[in-house]
Design a protein around this nucleic acid. Structure first.
Lengths: 219, 219
DNA sequence: CTCTATTTTTAGATATGTCTAAAAATAATT
DNA sequence: AATTATTTTTAGACATATCTAAAAATAGAG
């Protein structure tokens, strides 16, 4: 069934919120994510419920139906594939891709996406380390943790970021941190939980605001 | 200045009509091209005139301003570059690209287009042989003629098509005719102006309905 | 368990882009 | 030149997606 660009953005928002905050997504949470007023959200929720993309109980929040989840995940798949395209083929940096991918994700063509996938050699992760759902909507789960949860003395590889804002990504670029970068935890400051990290042979200190936004995997 | 997707489609339509039928594009001609009612077109023309994209005199038809022409040509540039991408990189055939390019042409990102252009190695023509406007809106004019205007005994190269419909392009595919195909005019039937052509060493007869839709260049 | 604060929904308005039906202007015909 | 036909525009309505302001429901605090 046909979904409008706006509907797709709502589905994506609901999906992302339910990923981080569990079930029963609130109207206000969606309004904040979409940057719209709660009343506008309520209107759209009725529409999405009519289309069986969400289950919606007044005052109780919403959940995606299987159909809605499939739709949301497919949009995310498209978004992330386009991000890979932009970085790998068109020389975009990882802080430049979001706005363009946000537009490209709404292009409707099955063949376009399957061919793009093949052209990019079936990538499994986007430039920010986020997994790319497969054509059946399956998402590979990795055993990543937030850098803030890392243990003293252990070594890790950066596998992703949470905050994908241009500002944060530029901060990482400046300190030569990217997907695949090796990080060793030298010390953790009890007071503010800031970390001393060995990165590219140099030691640097990161606040919890930073380490909360970096995903790492033990090595 | 910001242009909506709908405005862009109107500008493109006006541009294409004025290319084939000269100045003072009529409301009805636009309505037909856009597949909308004349009253809807009138509404949009007022809007485009307010934005200085067209000059519009009631009952007299419209013309693109320089600003409008630039906007239209840029959309066409984007459309044709995406068509090249789809055919050259994603294995689309030339009869499959139109609908997808129609969506992709509205993506807004200067960098995307300049990088795509470079990635495709600065193509000069799209898969149907239409010239790709450069970044300044300049369009290369070629001395092509319609195959129906070709002379007996002369040899030509196919350089483009007029009708880009899937049906017509599939007809050409079936007879192994594409951009670059050599065509020699063996005979012309006076009665219906059908042509006997030597193509790929075989002789075939084409009606004027066909030869009117193929561009060729003398060799 | 009330009362207050917050969240959510409803009601009504606005902007975009579309339509139908009728009116106005232009073009064509006799 | 007058009448008819066609084109174009206006007027008013409708659908989508949004907003503000007010009402209703839920959650939180004492």
């Amino acid at each position: 069934m046909f979904t409008t660009l706006t509907e797709e953005n709502y589905l994506k928002a609901i999906y992302h919120i339910s990923q981080s905050s569990g079930t029963d997504v609130s109207t206000n949470a969606i309004a904040k994510q979409i940057d719209a007023k709660a009343s506008s959200v309520t209107d759209m929720l009725k529409k999405l419920a009519d289309k069986n993309l969400i289950t919606y109980i007044k005052y109780k929040g919403v959940n995606l139906t299987e159909k809605g989840r499939q739709a949301a995940v497919y949009i995310i798949r498209k978004h992330r594939l386009w991000e890979v395209f932009l970085v790998d083929k068109l020389n975009f940096s990882w802080d430049e891709v979001h706005d363009v991918a946000e537009q490209l994700e709404h292009i409707k063509s099955q063949k376009l996406i399957s061919e793009l996938d093949a052209f990019l050699d079936f990538p499994t992760h986007d430039p920010h380390g986020d997994p790319i759902p497969d054509e059946n909507g399956q998402i590979q789960r990795t055993n990543k943790i937030m850098l803030s949860q890392a243990q003293i003395g252990n070594s890790y590889t950066c596998v992703g970021v949470i905050d994908s804002s241009s500002e944060f990504l530029k901060y990482l670029d400046k300190h030569q941190i990217g997907i695949g970068t090796q990080i060793q935890v030298e010390a953790i400051e009890e007071f503010d939980h800031s970390m001393s990290l060995k990165i590219n042979t140099k030691i640097m200190v990161m606040s919890k605001a930073i380490t909360n936004n970096i995903y790492v995997k033990s090595i």
